[in-house]
Computed example of a mutant assay.
Amino acid sequence: MNYTLHQLMIFQKITETKSITKAAEELHLTQPAVSIQLKNLQDQFDIPLTEIVGRKLVVTDFGWEIASAIEKIIEEVQGINYKTAAFKGLMSGKLKISVVSTGKYVMPYFLSSFLQEHPEVDLKLDVTNKAKVLESLSANEVDFALVSILPEQMQVDGVKLMPNQLFLVGNRDFIFKNNEYDEGFLEELTLIYREEGSGTRLSMEKYLSSKNVSIRKKIELTSNEAVKQAVLAGMGCSIMPLIGIKDEIKSGELKIIPMEGFPLNTQWNLIYLRGRKFSPVAKMYLNYLIEHKDELIRKHFAWNL
């Protein structure tokens, strides 16, 4: 066996993207170069790593086994790099954070300057829904999780960051007939929901339940971006975090509908398992965040204060 680390890394990216084209794009290589490296790796095994079904590349069961082994190999190589950097006096390692989907508008601003100060630190940032974020945190797969609603069944500590405000919004064609609407108005709307497991959806449902509102027509979509595009297109209205729609509100593409009891308010928190033993990088980032969070909020989120 004479496969190279380069071939293994390319195959790992192929399994992640399930596409030679996408793997090539993410690795900044040409598609033929990726195909050649995949062939060279495949030539060293008697069992197929991938198959073409229709026009789609499919990783075989054996291919997934190899991919799992490759992940461990690459982690060991990264460990060597981190130790080398440490001997040079540089702080290095991997920082792993899971973020609820709306948090993609928040978390980068609390990471950028830290990563600039510590270029040897690698970041793994997973953006998904609340249920999967908490699953990753519970399984101890990540150092931190960014959520807007604290979990009730998990022992966590964390750092409070900033408010998360949710408003009822419609598109530019929404005509205001009242200066302010009561909760009964929601029953007249087609309301666009996030999927089950979303923190935004949970906030919506808690509000609707507390007001005994029964929604007659609803649409369910699986991302904040999809919800925003649906509202922009006039498919209905939705309760959305301001942080993800502020540009559209400013341009007039979306309108905040004045509702009694709004905005709904939650709190962005970066949380971690209580009693977790941090890596040096995670501990350094936690200290950095505690020290600099107020400065970063004033710099990047003054409009939200």
Rank of each mutant, 00 (worst) to 15 (best):
P241L: 05
A230Y: 05
A24K: 13
I47N: 09
F185T: 00
Q78S: 05
L125N: 07
P48S: 02
N2L: 08
R194K: 13
K206Q: 14
I14H: 12
D157I: 01
T102A: 12
L168D: 04
P258R: 01
L146V: 02
L90A: 10
G63S: 01
L166T: 09
V169D: 07
L286T: 01
E220C: 13
S203V: 15
K250C: 07
L191R: 02
S251T: 14
K246N: 14
I70T: 07
K96N: 07
K277H: 06
V159P: 04
N81E: 11
I256C: 09
K211D: 03
M91N: 07
L115C: 12
S138F: 01
N40I: 04
K94V: 09
R298I: 04
R298D: 11
F144K: 15
T222C: 05
N224H: 15
S251K: 06
D43T: 01
E180K: 12
Y82T: 11
L8Q: 11
I256Q: 10
E225G: 01
V159I: 10
Y207N: 04
A85D: 04
I10H: 03
V106R: 06
I66H: 07
E117T: 03
G63V: 02
E220P: 12
I52N: 11
A33G: 06
N178Q: 15
V133C: 15
F278S: 14
S98W: 07
K18G: 04
